[in-house]
């Protein structure tokens, strides 16, 4: 049962990470690629790390309180927290730098930021 849940989690995680890769190839410009490359990977990673935590917590319970499996469970959980904080932060920095260097969104129907620059 535990293994089946793990496989399902890994499957979902791989699907979204695959979508991120496909999105990088298919989307037309910098910003839309950033969408695919940063966010689908976060969502995919939640499930992949969820699978790791699930397995290692089960091993921790089996191995008793002092078992070394606690290391894997806690480190994986901390890695997830770090991804959840750093991934959007990095995406902001990249997007902001991109717009300041003059990269325009392709096929854009509206660009309020560009308009705001002219009004200042």
């Amino acid at each position: 049962m535990l293994d089946i849940i793990t496989y399902v989690l890994i499957g979902i995680g791989l699907f979204f990470n695959l979508m991120a890769g496909v999105g990088l190839l298919r989307f037309p410009d910098f910003y839309t690629r950033l969408h695919a490359g940063t966010k689908c990977t976060t969502f995919g990673s939640i499930f992949l790390i969820g699978a790791v935590v699930l397995q290692s917590v089960a091993a921790w319970i089996d191995g008793g309180w002092g078992s070394p499996d606690s290391v894997l469970a806690l480190h994986a959980a901390i890695a997830l927290a770090a991804i959840l904080v750093t991934n959007p932060t990095g995406a902001h920095a990249i997007a902001r730098a991109g717009h300041r260097s003059g990269i325009k969104p392709v096929q854009a129907v509206v660009d309020d930021l560009e308009d705001a620059k002219f009004n200042d």
């Binding site: 839309t32 966010k39 689908c40």
Partner: peptide, 14 residues
């Protein structure tokens, strides 16, 4: 977004 990756239907803007 997975749907948009597959179909390519996007209408971006800021």
């Amino acid at each position: 977004v997975a749907y948009r990756v597959i179909t390519g239907r996007i209408k971006p803007g800021i």
